[in-house]
Computed example of a mutant assay.
Amino acid sequence: MSGVSMNRTDLKNAVAEKAGLTGTDADKAVAAVIDSIAEALVAGDKVTIPGFGTFETRHRAARQGRNPQTGESMEIAASTSAAFKPGSDLKRRLSDA
């Protein structure tokens, strides 16, 4: 799928085809993987998939920013977000593409 965005249905269909699963079973598998990663991140854990990469949370401290419409200074609240760091095998595959 070069240059095209893959959505959840596309992912489910690809998993079904590659793993020889029914669409329903593939959808359950995709949902289970996504839920498991999300639950681990909420708990503050890292999820490492060797060769693919690492999912982790990153904390951003509160900081001063500017409202782009008015130019007024404003406080941006601290936040936590999910981050992904690709593994060496994935990096190599991407650079070979």
Score class of each variant (00 low, 15 high):
residue 2 S to R: 04
residue 2 S to C: 00
residue 3 G to D: 13
residue 4 V to F: 01
residue 4 V to P: 00
residue 4 V to N: 02
residue 5 S to M: 11
residue 5 S to F: 08
residue 6 M to C: 10
residue 6 M to K: 11
residue 7 N to G: 12
residue 7 N to K: 06
residue 8 R to F: 08
residue 9 T to I: 14
residue 9 T to D: 05
residue 10 D to S: 03
residue 10 D to Y: 02
residue 12 K to P: 01
residue 12 K to V: 15
residue 13 N to S: 06
residue 14 A to L: 07
residue 14 A to T: 07
residue 14 A to M: 06
residue 15 V to S: 00
residue 15 V to G: 04
residue 16 A to D: 01
residue 16 A to Q: 05
residue 18 K to R: 15
residue 18 K to W: 02
residue 18 K to Y: 02
residue 18 K to T: 09
residue 18 K to A: 13
residue 18 K to I: 01
residue 19 A to M: 12
residue 19 A to H: 10
residue 20 G to R: 01
residue 20 G to V: 00
residue 21 L to M: 06
residue 23 G to F: 08
residue 24 T to P: 03
residue 25 D to I: 00
residue 25 D to M: 02
residue 27 D to I: 00
residue 28 K to S: 10
residue 29 A to N: 06
residue 30 V to T: 11
residue 30 V to Q: 08
residue 30 V to P: 08
residue 31 A to Q: 14
residue 33 V to G: 14
residue 35 D to S: 13
residue 35 D to M: 05
residue 35 D to E: 14
residue 35 D to L: 03
residue 35 D to R: 04
residue 36 S to I: 00
residue 36 S to P: 01
residue 38 A to I: 11
residue 41 L to D: 03
residue 42 V to L: 09
residue 42 V to S: 13
residue 43 A to T: 01
residue 43 A to F: 09
residue 43 A to P: 00
residue 43 A to Q: 12
residue 45 D to C: 06
residue 47 V to D: 09
residue 47 V to R: 12
residue 48 T to G: 12
residue 49 I to Y: 11
residue 49 I to K: 05
residue 52 F to C: 09
residue 53 G to F: 06
residue 54 T to L: 05
residue 54 T to H: 07
residue 55 F to P: 04
residue 55 F to W: 09
residue 55 F to C: 12
residue 56 E to P: 02
residue 57 T to Y: 08
residue 58 R to K: 06
residue 59 H to C: 01
residue 59 H to N: 04
residue 59 H to R: 04
residue 60 R to H: 11
residue 60 R to W: 07
residue 61 A to F: 15
residue 63 R to F: 15
residue 63 R to C: 15
residue 63 R to D: 15
residue 63 R to I: 14
residue 63 R to W: 15
residue 64 Q to N: 04
residue 65 G to N: 02
residue 65 G to D: 02
residue 67 N to E: 11
residue 68 P to E: 05
residue 69 Q to W: 02
residue 70 T to I: 07
residue 70 T to A: 08
residue 70 T to D: 11
residue 70 T to S: 11
residue 71 G to I: 05
residue 71 G to T: 04
residue 71 G to S: 11
residue 73 S to V: 14
residue 73 S to I: 08
residue 73 S to H: 03
residue 74 M to Q: 10
residue 75 E to Y: 03
residue 76 I to T: 01
residue 77 A to Y: 07
residue 77 A to C: 05
residue 77 A to W: 12
residue 78 A to N: 01
residue 78 A to R: 00
residue 79 S to Y: 07
residue 80 T to D: 03
residue 81 S to I: 13
residue 81 S to N: 07
residue 81 S to W: 06
residue 83 A to S: 14
residue 84 F to E: 07
residue 85 K to H: 05
residue 85 K to C: 01
residue 85 K to E: 00
residue 86 P to F: 03
residue 86 P to S: 13
residue 86 P to W: 04
residue 88 S to K: 14
residue 88 S to R: 10
residue 89 D to H: 09
residue 90 L to N: 10
residue 90 L to F: 12
residue 91 K to E: 12
residue 92 R to H: 13
residue 92 R to N: 14
residue 93 R to D: 10
residue 93 R to H: 11
residue 94 L to R: 08
residue 95 S to K: 14
residue 95 S to L: 11
residue 95 S to H: 13
residue 97 A to C: 08
